[in-house]
Structures are given as structure tokens and as C-alpha cells.
Design a protein around this nucleic acid. Sequence first.
DNA 1: TTAATGATGGGCT
DNA 2: GCCCATCATTAAA
Length: 196
Amino acid sequence: MENNVLLREFYLQPTLKVAKELVGKTLYRKINDRVLSGKIVETEAYLKNDPACHASRGMTERNKVMFGEAGRAYVYFTYGMHHCFNIVTQKEGVAEAVLIRAVEPIEGIEIMRRNRKLRTTNHKPLTNLTNGPAKLCQAFGIDKKLNGVDMTKGDFVILDSKNNETVKKATRIGITEYTDKLWRFHNNSEFVSRIS
DNA sequence: TTAATGATGGGCT
DNA sequence: GCCCATCATTAAA
């Protein structure tokens, strides 16, 4: 298991390349000896000098992890109730990251269902578990306690996998600047938050 | 089917 | 005070 964990050198590659290549890889988390995993199906890149990037206006208490070393988790709280999860790329001082927007559940689906606490029934219950950045955080139990965690080792990592995903480019979601940039990557599957 | 809305609180231009 | 890299629910059509 440990031998195919993505290492720091992977995250030191150009951020757009990292974002694209993360599609098809496996997000893995072990909590209390129970495994949660999912195939990453949708990502977004946030670059330096990108007005949509949290770090574009300088370092703050919230975004300082983005300025640190590659391979760490940047988890932030938004809309008063949601978390979003990114992986930091680039060397220290260069604040770039990849937002994980959606995964396809593989292991620990019952735990994910419990973590999601949905009231109403959905006609696509599996898809609806992790097809959004805040949904996957809920399902995987990701919150601010994981902000800054090193993802190149330990129980919260991304596993390499030989995959031949067809990766499509699209515009990013939920931003108001640089909306023309095709910095969102997805595999066009039903587990993506939305196609376009 | 799509559109509108309320929830809810940390960060900050 | 206003803004948010969102989501679930309700309303409309």
C-alpha cells in the first residue's frame, strides 16, 4: 500500500499537469482501521497570479499552507458550513494548489453514507455521495483538522494507479474571475459534479 | 426539468 | 458589512 503513494516530486510538477494527472488516481484515507477510498474524477487548478486563487492577494492565516511545501492538504471552511479540500503544489513560496472536486466511491461506502447524513432519498444515491467538493469532504470526514497535513505519507494520501482516463478540460465552477480558463479537469463520468 | 432560496459562520479586498 | 472554490430543499413550469 505504501509503495504506490504519490510522493512530493509528483506535486512539484507544473500545477496544471498535476491537476490533470490526478484524475484517475485514488484518494485514500484510513480512520480507526477503516478504509475510505475513491477514484478522483474531477479537479481544478489554482495558480499564482490567478485572481480566483485564495493566495492571489498575499498570505493570510487561512491560506498560509498554500505557500508551504508541496504535497500538503489545504482545507478551508466556506459558506458557513462546508469544507473544501486541495493539495498544495509547487515549491515553498509559490502558492498553487489543486482542488479535488469529485471522486467515485470505491471502499467504505457505508461509512460515507453515514457521514453524509442525507435526509431525503435521492434517485442516484451512490453518485450523490461524493460528486462535489464539500460532499466529498463530508463523506471522507475531511475538516480543518487536516489542514496542513503531509499527504506523501501516513493514513491520508493519494495512491498512484495505472489508468487511461480520458481527461476533459472545462471552465472552473463557483468563481467570478478568470472564468474563461480551462483549468478544470474531469473524466466525463456520472460521478463528476457537472459536465461542461 | 430547471430555478430560487435559506442555511450558517469565518475571512477580509 | 459583505463576500464566499457549496448544498439541500422547495417552488415553479
